[in-house]
């Protein structure tokens, strides 16, 4: 039988294939590419100088700083939490393990606005804890600590979700081998466990960081929108846009879009180069 006449049983005919591909491309162009292009064209609509000026505006600089600060706290915190949680889940047997896994996924299933609201109800002025916090001079809601807490909550699952399937798949054999060769717990972790999971860890951190910097809903509820104080980049974009400052809004938005593109590129590199080591982790 000639190759040309042989039809793969699971391949559609050419017109169907082209129609499907065209539909997907049209969809992507309309919903992904166009907005991205608009962000940049609007940001540069009054030229380079206006763009740079918009980014140098004091409130914008403060918003960028705050976003970086929040990410710098939330990402390492969730790196440690995620590592600890996946270590416990993958390497030990204990009661309530499946409950813990469900709990880790909770931030994915709860609306970010609700999770923000929980912090307001918990730490706000009219809450049970409110007066106690106030008497100690602690301000959590409508301040940086609240923003950090909300961001940590929302980005909690990213690292853990990446590591749990991989570490479960790898089991405890390598660690057992290491300790049978005389390594202590720390050496086994550092020389054997970490190298085995490093790419998945990096991947999780990347996703966690993208979300931490881009989070809007939860942060919006706890921040109080105080200009120059509790506005992160996404919140600042909204305020500028409501002020009809189109260039300013899109200039800050373009930074977030660049972050998204960078994440995408790094993610693609990781996936193509270390896809096998990321193993079963890809579920997003």
């Amino acid at each position: 039988m000639s190759n040309e006449r042989f039809k793969n049983p699971i391949t559609e005919s050419a017109p169907v294939r082209w129609a499907l591909i065209a539909a997907v491309l049209a969809f992507l162009a309309l919903f992904v590419l166009t907005p991205l292009v608009i962000v940049f064209t609007e940001a540069f609509s009054k030229g380079w100088e206006e763009y740079i000026l918009a980014l140098q505006e004091p409130d914008a600089v403060k918003a960028i700083r705050l976003t970086l600060l929040v990410a710098a706290i939330a990402v390492p915190a969730n790196l440690l939490f995620g590592l600890a949680a996946s270590w416990a889940i993958a390497k030990f047997e204990f009661r309530g393990k499946s409950f813990l896994i469900t709990l880790i996924d909770l931030p994915f299933s709860v609306s970010p606005v609700i999770s923000g609201l929980v912090y307001v109800l918990l730490f706000g002025a009219n809450s049970v804890l409110g007066p106690i916090l106030k008497s100690h001079g602690l301000q959590i809601v409508f301040a940086v600590p609240g923003i950090v807490l909300a961001t940590i909550f929302v980005t909690f699952p990213f690292v853990a979700r990446e590591l749990i399937p991989l570490m479960q798949d790898q089991g405890t054999g390598d660690e057992e081998a290491a300790i049978s060769l005389g390594a202590n717990g720390w050496q086994a972790f550092w020389y054997v466990t970490v190298p085995n999971i490093k790419w998945a860890l990096l991947y999780g951190v990347l996703l966690c960081n993208a979300r931490a910097m881009g989070e809007f809903g939860a942060v919006s509820v706890v921040s109080g929108h105080i200009r120059g104080l509790t506005n992160t980049m996404p919140l600042h974009v909204e305020i500028l846009y409501n002020d009809y400052n189109v260039v300013g809004a899109f200039a800050v938005a373009s930074l977030l879009a660049l972050l998204a593109l960078l994440t995408l590129v790094l993610r693609t590199i990781l996936e193509t180069r270390y896809g096998s080591e990321l193993s079963a982790g890809q579920k997003h």
Partner: peptide, 11 residues
């Protein structure tokens, strides 16, 4: 100890 699936350190 020699493990059933060797447990060699792959990296």
């Amino acid at each position: 100890f020699v493990f059933q699936h060797y447990a060699l350190f792959r990296h």
